[in-house]
Design a protein around this nucleic acid. Sequence first.
DNA 1: AAAAACAAACACGCAAGCATGTTTTTCGGC
DNA 2: GCCGAAAAACATGCTTGCGTGTTTGTTTTT
Lengths: 210, 210
Amino acid sequence: MTSAAPRRSQEARSEDTQRRLLEATVALLLERGYTRLTTPDIARRAGLSRGALTHHFASKEDIVVRALGAQLEATTSGLRRFCDSRPAPTMNTDDVVDYLWPMMEQGLFYVTLEYLPEARNNPGFRAQLLPLVQDFHAALDAIWTRLSESYGVPPEQARVTMNATMCLIRGMIAQTVLRDDPAYFKQILDYWKGHLRTSLGARRPAERAA
Amino acid sequence: MTSAAPRRSQEARSEDTQRRLLEATVALLLERGYTRLTTPDIARRAGLSRGALTHHFASKEDIVVRALGAQLEATTSGLRRFCDSRPAPTMNTDDVVDYLWPMMEQGLFYVTLEYLPEARNNPGFRAQLLPLVQDFHAALDAIWTRLSESYGVPPEQARVTMNATMCLIRGMIAQTVLRDDPAYFKQILDYWKGHLRTSLGARRPAERAA
DNA sequence: AAAAACAAACACGCAAGCATGTTTTTCGGC
DNA sequence: GCCGAAAAACATGCTTGCGTGTTTGTTTTT
């Protein structure tokens, strides 16, 4: 019993510590919001001291930006995996919507709602966020393009339609904050699914073969 | 030159002061955001002292809630006027979208983006906001219902379609914060206008006469 | 005279940034 | 393969600025 701690390398320690702090940041962002997010709380949540945080991250802005970058990347890679999992004929447009809605509603877009106001009013913060978000949008466009190939529609059409779908979901989730009315949102989502079926998808194999 | 000030009644003074403070609140909410909104700034902007503000409003939350209520009411009454101004045959669905988009994009929804996070994380604030927003949504539904009569479609269909339109616009405006790309948003808006033309409107007089 | 409207000053709490300690890991020389 | 210095990782305490709520004081209307 020389030491219970197995002497980890500094790189491993550092990486683990940063990961814990970034995860705590996203969790608190979702639970309490940006204005109530404090660096002492982040450190506490990660089981570390505030000094550890200031050692790895220059400022509150810095840790938030890096936490959001990680969240956005995890999101696109998850979506990509989903779209690859079952291509064209087995996956219909309803399935895509049924993936996107919970993806956004279970955290992603509530976190977005927290940092959008700060991004709008804090030029430095916005400048740091812009490249991350551009990558995110580019990754989405790439996924919509692959979907268009599966469905046999022009890429441009799929991109516009799916980006509109994302915007619709964003607006709906924003509304959920002050409207607790699941039936209302289900109605809109069903309406949209119907629209997507005729506008994007469900060409029968015979049609797609041509 | 006994007095340049013409001895106004207390009620008139009070009303004017409150109006100036509420207008300053909305303006600053749009310009600097909720977290940067301070009561000294509001008073300064209104050309009054902080004491005047605290005299008329119990707290920062209080003045914000009342300012937002005024903004929401002004919005619905403006929209109602617009829809009454030129009913059915002369007003097409494109015109409605061309009214709604600037209405939201020139301030209303950016202000919304400022207070939504606070509403999500501050139960007291949210509770005060809920009735105002319920009235707002009810007023919108009433307007959509009148539109449905003009266009000769079932009220339910118009309500779902127009509420979806509002959600789409909300989501798009949220995206504008970190995506400066007018062509992208125009493309989506044009796409949606096309959908609305076939889905809601533009039945020819002969058809509507029946 | 009293009550409302407005003004100015005070007090408290909090969170970020910084600076100064302590521990753990790394690495070069022997 | 070991020892000691340097550096990285982590912890603790201080300081400063700021915004809200509150209180006390002054002017205007009733």
